[in-house]
Computed example of a mutant assay.
Amino acid sequence: MNIFYKILLHFQKHGYYVCQRIADRLGIRAKVVRTSFIYLTFVTLGFGFALYLFLSFLMRVKDLVYTKRSSVFDL
C-alpha cells in the first residue's frame, strides 16, 4: 500500500488541477469531483479518464490564450 500512496501523492502534486478548478467553478469540494470522475471511469470503462484528459487539455489551452496582461505593450 505504501507504493500506492507514493503514486497518488505524485499525481496530486504534479497534476493539472482539473478537479480543483472545476470544483472552484461549481462551488463544491474537489473531493466530490474526483470521486465523480472515478465512478464515471469505472461505470463507462474509461470514458471518465478520457473526459479528464480532454478537460485538462482545454484548461491548458485556455491558460495559454487568456493570460492577464498589465498593459497593451505586453504582447
Score class of each variant (00 low, 15 high):
Asn2Arg: 00
Ile3Glu: 10
Ile3Met: 14
Phe4Ser: 09
Tyr5Thr: 12
Tyr5Cys: 12
Tyr5Gly: 07
Lys6Cys: 05
Lys6Thr: 14
Leu8Gly: 04
His10Asp: 09
His10Ser: 00
Lys13Leu: 03
Lys13Thr: 03
His14Glu: 09
Gly15Cys: 00
Tyr16Trp: 08
Tyr16Arg: 03
Tyr16Asn: 01
Tyr17Val: 04
Tyr17Ile: 00
Val18Cys: 01
Cys19Ser: 11
Gln20His: 05
Gln20Asn: 14
Arg21Trp: 08
Arg21Ser: 01
Arg21Phe: 01
Arg21His: 00
Ile22Thr: 00
Ile22Asp: 11
Ala23Phe: 02
Asp24Val: 02
Asp24Gly: 02
Asp24Pro: 10
Asp24Leu: 11
Arg25Thr: 13
Arg25Gly: 11
Leu26Pro: 03
Gly27Gln: 11
Ile28Thr: 05
Arg29Tyr: 11
Ala30His: 15
Ala30Trp: 13
Lys31Phe: 14
Lys31Met: 07
Val32Lys: 12
Val33Leu: 08
Val33Gln: 06
Arg34Val: 15
Arg34Asp: 15
Arg34Glu: 05
Thr35Met: 11
Ser36Thr: 09
Phe37Trp: 06
Ile38Asn: 11
Ile38Gly: 14
Ile38Val: 00
Ile38Trp: 10
Tyr39Thr: 11
Tyr39His: 11
Leu40Glu: 02
Leu40Phe: 15
Phe42His: 10
Phe42Met: 04
Val43Lys: 07
Val43Asp: 10
Val43Gln: 06
Thr44Phe: 02
Thr44Cys: 02
Gly46Gln: 03
Gly48His: 03
Gly48Lys: 00
Ala50Tyr: 12
Ala50Ser: 14
Leu51Asn: 01
Tyr52Ser: 03
Tyr52Cys: 02
Tyr52Thr: 06
Leu53Val: 03
Leu53Tyr: 06
Leu53Asn: 10
Phe54Arg: 09
Phe54His: 10
Phe54Glu: 08
Phe54Leu: 07
Phe54Ile: 04
Leu55Arg: 04
Leu55Cys: 07
Ser56Ile: 00
Phe57Trp: 07
Phe57Asn: 10
Phe57Glu: 12
Leu58Thr: 04
Leu58Tyr: 09
Met59Ile: 03
Val61Ile: 04
Val61Gly: 04
Val61Ser: 05
Val61Tyr: 07
Val61His: 08
Lys62Trp: 12
Lys62Met: 05
Lys62Cys: 11
Asp63Ala: 03
Asp63Lys: 01
Asp63Asn: 04
Leu64His: 12
Leu64Ser: 15
Leu64Arg: 10
Leu64Trp: 12
Tyr66Met: 15
Thr67Ser: 09
Lys68Tyr: 10
Lys68Asp: 08
Lys68Trp: 15
Arg69Ala: 02
Ser70His: 10
Ser71Gly: 04
Ser71Asp: 14
Val72Cys: 06
Val72Glu: 13
Phe73Trp: 09
Asp74Ile: 03
Asp74Leu: 00
Leu75Pro: 05
